[in-house]
Design a protein around this nucleic acid. Structure first.
Lengths: 223, 223, 223, 223
DNA sequence: TATGAATGAGCCTTCATTCAT
DNA sequence: CATGAATGAAGGCTCATTCAT
């Protein structure tokens, strides 16, 4: 059987020149995310992105004025505007703060870490030299809000007497560091690791959180 | 990897002019490392590398058949295993294992983290998509031995009753993660961070090690 | 050339909406003339023309099969011979031939030179390399009749003993040259001239005509 | 006989990759002048220019950072720096001012008007809309000095009592206008004129100069 | 008829690589 | 060995033109 070729007239949809103004940007961003993450920004050709989104090169430029703007849109689309949702969710959490931290980390993994969106962070860090502007943007749109969110969680634990007094800034980095590491590791080293030695994300997160929480807990005084 | 490396101290420093030819590849690699780290592989022009090394574009190609080969040489040259030296050093350590861990982390920072050598890690992770074989190589030459070294340290702590029983693999990642994070952060986000908000490496390492150690300690039983 | 031109004044101005369809080509040509003159043929985008005419890009192609055809229509439409009218007007002139020449030049300025119609001459000359057939067309439709008209004026002066015997062909060019120069100057150099140094068209024409007439006059013999 | 093909090894010179750094810019400018004049700026491809100069596309960009800069260089090279020579030449003229004017105009024709350099003026005027910057440059580098030069000639004639008192600015335009006209005419209309009707430049210049001079002469008072 | 989303050929420009000197 | 002028393949982007709605 020869390689798959576009069927003559089987499938009902997919006309050549469909007019789908609403759907295009999202499809292009999705395609760009995948390719940027896979090959890096510079090594990805806009024509590839367009092809993957099922449109022509020209169409891409109908929606994004330049390759760099496409990149920015990818970052924006996949991160911005999700913090309000998360802030809200965490504000309503009623359990103890240890549970809250665990919940936050697992949630992050499910919604970002294990999705293609996780590639963005790798992308931004990898290309930060070439696009300082984007690193800057990321800093403000993602790092800042993320930091604030985690800080609020930790403060809650301190206020409720669950955590000891912590130097907040660095405690926040304690939570961020393993997640960033996990991302970088997953996108960089995992593909060339023998499967047996691969880092299991869930286990890693559990281990990290346990370790960190253990270190943050208010010491029980002996009777 | 036989590429020239700064000789120990044998010949009494030949006159600059004469030494030149010998030193060329090293100078090119050094220049390339700096630029690749700063701007990424694709965004660095070979001409820049040559200029920074004080030679012409043509000369670069006299020593490295292609830009890719230059890249590989950069990684190979800078990864050169210093593990035997470290293994030895740590084997002779006589203090308690908490001190040993602290010592190891600070030493790593002084000898790798804060030097330009830290750039190759960033480089390898950033370009792993484009150069899978390099990531593979790095995995075997650096990750593996590093892992083993840390594992030995932790085992020592357990054996001496200083640490509780730990899932070694993941405990090792607990130590690696913040260091990798620190590297990436330093090379990617720091330049576009307002100085006031910058992560201080020493403080970060101290905080992390404290946290981790606290979590790894064998629980003191109350009297 | 049957393309729509502003009708004399027959129908009592149909409502704007209804008139639209009829008027489209004319509006497009008008917009194109302005833009072609201002920016040149190649640098003008059809979308700009359409926008200026208040229609969409697609509509333009409904009336003109290509950008080149639009260009040709612009020239054809604006060249529309008004020579019969002028021939007639000048034939009825009763004053002396000096006055006639002055009158002709000023009239030309008022009806062509200072109006947007002056742009086509610039256009034709500028784009003659790209559109030789247009230059040819212009030659026959405008240059020829214009030449003939001026020649008749000069001949009248000679016949009436007002002008000396002149090499007619070149005397005609003497009258054409400053007008063409004025056009090109106005459209090309004026925008980037400090206002204080700008050529005043009326003064220029007066000066030129005086000079030329002075040179063409039959020398008065001293008493 | 098939179309000419590069001979195997006949002619002695013309190696494939000749290194002729000194000669390149001039050759490229010459090629560009010819093509820009022939086809206009936009319609000329840099690759054509390079090919005509006998080099590859890349080489062109070795000497000129962009197509526009090449254009500027063409203008600069063909006009700038020739005024001092002319100024000097005219300052040493000893004949009467009528002769001087005639001499100036014929000289201009021989050194500019009939050479490819004459195309530049057409080019600048045609593309002034697209490159206001160049029109501006031309205004300052060419129009200004040219104006001053002609003004000096006329002033000389007035000072020596050969010309009557003239409004200098407009008298200068009287001399410029026919030359500019001649240029535009030659480059735009001549190619599509039947040879029999073509304007002969020398005759035209003579006629014009005669006419103008006649108009500028101090009137002889009858005895 | 009118619209404007979609197309894709074409062009400027970059830069790794080659090679005559 | 070293140089740097020359090369040419590759890619971002534009815009005249098409066509589904």
């Amino acid at each position: 059987m020869p390689a798959a070729r576009p069927q003559p007239a089987a499938t009902p949809a997919a006309p050549r020149r469909a007019r789908r103004k609403e759907a295009r940007p999202g499809e292009l961003i999705e395609a760009a995310l995948a390719l940027f993450v896979e090959k890096g920004f510079a090594a990805t050709r806009v024509e590839e992105v367009a092809a993957r989104a099922g449109v022509s090169k020209g169409t891409l430029f109908l929606y994004f004025p330049s390759k760099e703007d496409l990149f920015k849109a990818v970052v924006r689309e996949n991160i911005a505007g999700r913090f309000p949702e998360w802030d809200n969710e965490l504000a309503q959490f009623t359990g103890d703060s240890l549970e809250l931290v665990r919940y936050a980390m697992h949630t992050w993994w499910e919604r970002i870490g294990m999705t293609p969106a996780s590639g963005i962070t790798k992308l931004v860090m990898s290309e930060s030299g070439t696009f300082p502007e984007i690193a800057n943007f990321y800093q403000q749109e993602v790092i800042g809000p993320g930091h604030a969110l985690l800080r609020r969680i930790l403060q809650r634990g301190i206020d409720r007497g669950e955590f000891r007094e912590l130097p907040l800034d660095y405690a926040v980095y304690s939570l961020i560091a393993p997640m960033i590491f996990l991302l970088m590791w997953k996108h960089s080293m995992t593909p060339c690791c023998p499967p047996s030695e691969r880092l299991d994300p869930i286990t890693f997160i559990d281990t990290q959180v346990d370790l960190i929480l253990r270190g943050m807990l208010r010491p029980r005084r002996p009777v």
